[in-house]
């Protein structure tokens, strides 16, 4: 009955810095999630932590996050996610929206 914590590490080919110290987006509603992306000196790498009540989707999380990281090429960032049964499409959407939050 505890929450699952998943950790992933990514090494972007051409690491790009987050233009703000941190950005937060999303609400942990049912089938939804929130994310904080923040600058952190990780020697160019990116780390992601997911806290979720769901088990058995470790591989899917990794793939969804990898696809996002491949697209955005962020380096030196820590990504923290609180999840409540978000589907992969919602996860991808919220991650993209978090970045749009900075631009908007």
């Amino acid at each position: 009955m505890a929450l699952t914590q998943l950790k992933y590490e990514f090494s972007p080919a051409t690491p790009r810095a987050l233009p703000v110290p941190a950005v937060h987006f999303g609400v942990v509603g049912s089938g939804d999630m929130e994310v904080i992306i923040e600058n952190k000196d990780l020697g160019g790498k990116a780390v992601a932590t997911v806290v979720t009540p769901v088990t058995g989707f470790d591989h899917v999380w990794e793939m969804v996050l990898r696809r996002f990281m491949d697209e955005c090429q962020l380096g030196n960032v820590a990504i923290s996610i609180n999840d409540n049964n978000a589907t992969p499409v919602v996860v991808s959407l919220r991650l993209r929206q978090a970045l749009l939050e900075i631009e908007g």
């Binding site: 009955m1 505890a2 929450l3 937060h24 609400v27 942990v28 904080i36 009540p53 923290s80 609180n82």
Partner: peptide, 21 residues
């Protein structure tokens, strides 16, 4: 005390319930 401060509930994780920052 916004989300980046990460003051989450100390009780929900014990119950396996999703938390919010």
């Amino acid at each position: 005390v916004g989300p980046t401060e990460r003051f989450i509930s100390p009780h929900l994780p014990e119950l396996g319930e999703a938390v919010e920052f």
